[in-house]
Amino acid sequence: MRKFIFIAFVFCVSATNAQEFNLTDTYDVANQRTVGQEEEDTWAVDVIVTNNPEKSIATLNIADFGLLDEIRISVLEEPALEGITEILKITLEYNTCCASTEEQYYLVTADYDVIALPGIKNEYGYDPISDIHYIFPNQPFGKEGTILRAVVQYTETHTIKDISVLRSIAWNDDDFGQEEALTAINY
C-alpha cells in the first residue's frame, strides 16, 4: 500500500509541475509593413511588449501574408531553465489547400532580453499523425536542464503515442547553430 501511495504522490507532483503554453496578452504584434517588392506578398511584423510598445522582442518576416490565417502568441512560464523567466511561442497558422504552421520560440529573461531558437514548420494534409515541437524541462517528457526538439506522434484519438528526440540542447550551451527551420510534413 505504501508503494502505491508513493507512486501516486510522484505522479501527482509530476503532473502539477508539468505546464503547457497559454495564450497571453502580455505581447502583441505591431508595425505591419511590406518587405521587398509588394508583389512578393512578404510582410514584417514586430512582436512587442504590450505595456511597453517601444520594446520589440522580435521581428517576423511572413511570406505569403495573404494566406496567413492567424498569429497566436503563447507563453510557458517558469520553464526551469536558469535565468529564463518564460518561453514565448509565436505560431503563424496558414490555411491553403493544406494547413501549415510556423512556430518561433524565444527564451525571455527578466529584462526582456531574448534568445531565439531555430523555427519549426509543420504541414498537414489531414489530421496530424505527427508534428515537431520543442519540449522544455517543466513539460511532460521534459528533461532537466535540457531543451528537446522532438517528433510527437499521435493516436487516432489525438493522444500522444510516441516521442522521438531529434536534438537535445544542453541549456548551459547557448550556441544553437545556424540551423534552418525544421519542417515536418504529414500527407
Rank of each mutant, 00 (worst) to 15 (best):
K3S: 11
N17H: 09
L67V: 02
E179W: 05
E38Q: 01
C98H: 02
P118V: 00
G142Q: 09
R167V: 04
L67M: 07
V13A: 08
D162A: 12
V75F: 08
K3M: 12
Y187K: 04
Y112V: 15
L76G: 04
T159R: 09
Y27T: 10
G66Q: 09
I115F: 10
Q32E: 15
Y187W: 12
E93P: 03
N138Y: 13
A80W: 13
T101C: 03
F6E: 03
F141S: 09
I62A: 05
E86R: 11
Q153C: 03
L117P: 01
Q104A: 07
F11A: 10
Y134L: 04
L166G: 03
N31F: 06
D175S: 12
K55N: 15
Q19N: 09
P118R: 03
T146S: 07
F21Q: 15
P128L: 02
E82P: 13
L60Y: 10
E144H: 08
E38R: 09
I135A: 06
T146L: 08
T59D: 08
D173P: 11
F136Y: 11
Q104K: 08
V49G: 10
S74W: 04
D131F: 01
C97V: 00
V75P: 06
D175V: 11
D28I: 09
V152P: 02
E70C: 06
P128C: 02
D41K: 11
S130D: 05
P79F: 10
F11V: 14
T159V: 00
Q178M: 15
E77Q: 09
T59A: 11
V151M: 13
I84P: 02
D162W: 04
I169H: 10
N31Y: 07
Y126C: 03
L166A: 08
G36W: 07
S56E: 14
F176T: 05
I163D: 02
Y105K: 12
V165E: 13
A116V: 09
N172S: 08
D111G: 15
L148F: 04
S100H: 00
V47N: 10
S14L: 07
I160A: 02
A116I: 05
E82C: 14
P140V: 00
V108M: 13
H133N: 10
A116D: 14
A184G: 10
G36C: 05
E93M: 12
Q104R: 11
D46R: 04
V75A: 04
Y134V: 07
V13P: 09
V13M: 15
S130K: 06
A150F: 09
N61M: 13
A44D: 08
F6W: 00
L117F: 09
G119T: 05
K3L: 12
V29Q: 05
E78P: 14
A8W: 01
D162E: 14
V151R: 15
E93T: 03
V10R: 10
V152I: 12
V35R: 05
A8M: 08
E102W: 06
L182Q: 11
P53W: 02
A44N: 08
L88C: 13
E180Q: 13
E144F: 04
L23V: 14
A15M: 09
V35F: 06
T24C: 01
E39N: 09
I73A: 00
T42F: 01
E156L: 00
Y187T: 05
I48C: 14
D41L: 10
F21S: 13
T96C: 07
E39G: 06
Y94H: 07
T91E: 12
E39I: 05
L76T: 07
D173R: 14
F65D: 06
R149Y: 01
